[in-house]
Nucleic acid binder design. Structure first.
Lengths: 236, 236
DNA sequence: ATGAAGTATTGGTACGAACCATATTACGAA
DNA sequence: TTCGTAATATGGTTCGTACCAATACTTCAT
C-alpha cells in the first residue's frame, strides 16, 4: 500500500490477479471487492475505471465486470522509445548523430511556445533495437528547461533524464504520416533510398499543458508498426 | 437535461461555454460550479473528468481547472471515415468496388472470433473526399450480424447503417503501418505504383468486447495523416 | 527588495448511503 | 415447451461529508 492512493494500489493488485485469467472471465462484483479489500465501493470503482481505461477489463451494466480480450495489443500510452522496445522484448540502444544548441526558429518556436530566437537543444539520434537501426529521432527541447543536458551521456533514455530534471510529459499530441525516406535518412537507417517509413511527430505537454518536447521519429516501415486502442466516447 | 445523466448534460453545457475561451483560461472552481448548477461536487468532477479525457481542459491540484491548448488537434476517438472527413470539412463519398459474402477463413475468422467457414460480408470501397480518391477500405463483418446489408446502398456511412442494426463499436484496436502501394491499389487511388500509403488495420469491438468489424484502410500518404493524443497514465 | 514561514484556496481521495438502469434468472401462465 | 413477467443481481448515478496534497497568496523578518 506504499505508493500512494488506495485505488492505485487496488488497481495494481487486481491487475496481478487478472493477469492469468482467460478473456471474458467475470471478476467479483464491486460490492464484494469492497468488502474483501475493506474499502468503499467508490474506491473499487475508481480502480476498475483505471483498468477499463487501460483496456484490461470491460464492464456491462446489470451483468458484471469481465476480463478484456487483449490478444491484440494493449492500449497505447505515452511511452519513450526505450520503454517501447523493452516492452517488445528488444534491447534498445542509441547513437547520437547531432547534439547542440540552436535558435528555435518559427516552426519549432511556435510549437514549443517560444520566441524565434529562444535557444533550444537539438538532438538527433539513431535508435537501435538488438543492434539493428530502427528509427531516426530528432528532438527539440527548450534550452532553459534542460541545463547541462548536452554534457551528459545521451545514448540512454532521454525520458528518464528529463524525469530527473523534473520534466514529465503527461500528455502528447501526435501526427502520424507515411513517407518515403530521403537519401541521408535511408543511409542511417540502412534501407534503400525511397523505402517507406512511418513518421511520428509528437509534442509532449506537462501537467500544466506546457510544451516541453517536440520530437519527430522516422521508423523503418519493415520493422515497426504502431498499435493502439481508441474509444468511441472518452471514458468518464 | 433531457439526454440522460446530469454529469453528461453538465459536460455538454461546460463544453459550449469553454468553446470561445482562450487556452489556459481558468474555469470556476469545482465548488463554485456545484453551487451554480445545483449539483454535488462529485457530479461536477465527473463532468470535468470527461472534458479532461477529451483533451478540452486540464486540472492542476491546488491551482484550478484550465482550458487546454488545442491548437494542434483533438484527442482521437473512434470515428468512421465519413465522420472524419466531415470534421476535416471535406465532402465524403464512396464507390463500392466489391461486395459479397464469403467464408471467413483463418485470418479474418480468428480476428472476428468465428469459425473458418462462418460467412462474413466482405466490402471493398474506394472512399473519396471532395471527389478525390483518399482511401481504399476493405471491411469484414460477421454475416449473421448484418442480415440484408448487401441489399442496401453501401455508398453512404457504414457505421450509421450498423447503428440501425444495433451494432455499435465502442472500442477498437488499431495497427498502423507505412507501406508502398501495389499496382491495383495504386490504380484505384490514382497514385503512381509504389507511392507511400498509411495502412490502418482496425478491429471494432462492442460494449461486451465482441469483435463486430475488421477493416483495413489504405490511405494516400499525400492526402492523409493521423492525429491523436496520448496520455502517460490512463485517466482515472 | 528579498526570502522564508504561515495561511487560504483548489483539486484529489475516501467514506457511506440511497436510488436508477440494465441484464440475468426464476417463475408461472398459455 | 414456450413465452412473457416478475424478482434479483449488477454496474451507473447522485448526494453529502470529511480530510489530504499541491499550489498560490499573505505576512513578516531580514
Amino acid at each position: 500500500m506504499f505508493p500512494g492512493s488506495k485505488h492505485e494500489w487496488l488497481g495494481a493488485e487486481l491487475r496481478k490477479q487478472i493477469e492469468p485469467l482467460d478473456a471474458h472471465t467475470p471478476l467479483s462484483t464491486e460490492r464484494e471487492l469492497a468488502v474483501r479489500y475493506q474499502v468503499s465501493r467508490a474506491t473499487v470503482r475508481t480502480a476498475l475505471r483505471g483498468l477499463e481505461a487501460a483496456g484490461i477489463v470491460y464492464r456491462v451494466q446489470g451483468a458484471g465486470t469481465f476480463v478484456s480480450d487483449s490478444t491484440v495489443s494493449k492500449t497505447l500510452t505515452l511511452t519513450s522509445f526505450s520503454e517501447d522496445m523493452r516492452r517488445r522484448a528488444s534491447r534498445p540502444d542509441s547513437r547520437v548523430v547531432v547534439a547542440g544548441e540552436v535558435p528555435a526558429g518559427s516552426v519549432i518556436g511556435g510549437e514549443l511556445r517560444l520566441s524565434v530566437d529562444d535557444p533550444v537543444v537539438r538532438l538527433v539520434r539513431l535508435r537501435l533495437a538488438d543492434d539493428e537501426p530502427m528509427c531516426l529521432e530528432t528532438s527539440y527541447l527548450p534550452a532553459v528547461l534542460v541545463p547541462g543536458l548536452l554534457g551528459e551521456d545521451l545514448s540512454s533514455s532521454l525520458y528518464e533524464k528529463l524525469d530527473t530534471l523534473g520534466i514529465r510529459p503527461v500528455r502528447a499530441e501526435q501526427v502520424v504520416t507515411a513517407v518515403t525516406t530521403e537519401d541521408t535518412e535511408a543511409g542511417l537507417l540502412v534501407v534503400p533510398p525511397g523505402a517507406p517509413a512511418l513518421r511520428v511527430q509528437r509534442i509532449g505537454l506537462d501537467h500544466r499543458d506546457q510544451p516541453v518536447e517536440r520530437t519527430t521519429s522516422l521508423y523503418r516501415a519493415d520493422r515497426y508498426d504502431l498499435k493502439f486502442g481508441v474509444r468511441r466516447e472518452p471514458l468518464i
